[in-house]
């Protein structure tokens, strides 16, 4: 019994040590989400908030992935559908659909995703630069993170918030 307890305590200690042992700079905190079949991640600090879908107003003369604008507690914020932007077929509204509101400096926008996945920590050394042969706009990808058995595409928020038309 006491053995087990000790084990748990030491495990806890280890976990608590984790961030400090490789100084905070070495670890990236990310939030991952799913668009279509793919899993993407963005740095947690760039997320202003995550909300359930609300009504939006179409803005004319914009490309298809710009759905329009919505009211976030008195601010008017653009809404961009990542599924259309990434060329993924748009499925019908599901319960899991969310708007992720990202902020970079003064730029703010909401992004439609299929569902949220998890928050995670990845060591910087486990992040590789984006592969050379990525299709489409390479600079949208900040890097590729390896965790356990899967790889996750980390998106560059400043690029996402950049006007692309």
């Amino acid at each position: 019994m006491s053995n087990k307890l000790q084990e748990v305590v030491s495990k806890q200690k280890k976990q608590q040590m984790k961030p400090s042992e490789g100084s905070a700079d070495d670890i990236l905190q990310l939030v991952s989400f799913v668009v279509g079949e793919e899993e993407y991640a963005i740095p947690i600090l760039t997320i202003q908030e995550i909300i359930k879908p609300i009504d939006h107003t179409r803005v004319p003369r914009t490309p298809a992935h710009v759905l329009g604008v919505f009211n976030l507690r008195g601010s008017v914020i653009p809404l961009i559908d990542l599924r259309i932007k990434f060329g993924v077929p748009v499925t019908n509204k599901s319960e899991d659909m969310r708007y992720i509101v990202l902020k970079d400096g003064n730029d703010t926008a909401g992004f439609v995703i299929d569902r949220l996945n998890q928050a995670m920590r990845i060591r910087k050394k486990n992040i590789d630069p984006a592969p050379e042969a990525v299709v489409g706009d390479k600079s949208l990808i900040d890097g590729v993170g390896k965790q356990d058995d899967k790889i996750i595409t980390i998106l560059r928020v400043s690029k996402l918030l950049e006007r692309d038309f």
Partner: peptide, 15 residues
């Protein structure tokens, strides 16, 4: 205003 992303859209002065 519509924010940086949608700034200066033709025909739209704001929201």
């Amino acid at each position: 205003n519509l924010g940086e992303y949608l700034k200066g859209m033709d025909g739209i002065a704001g929201a």
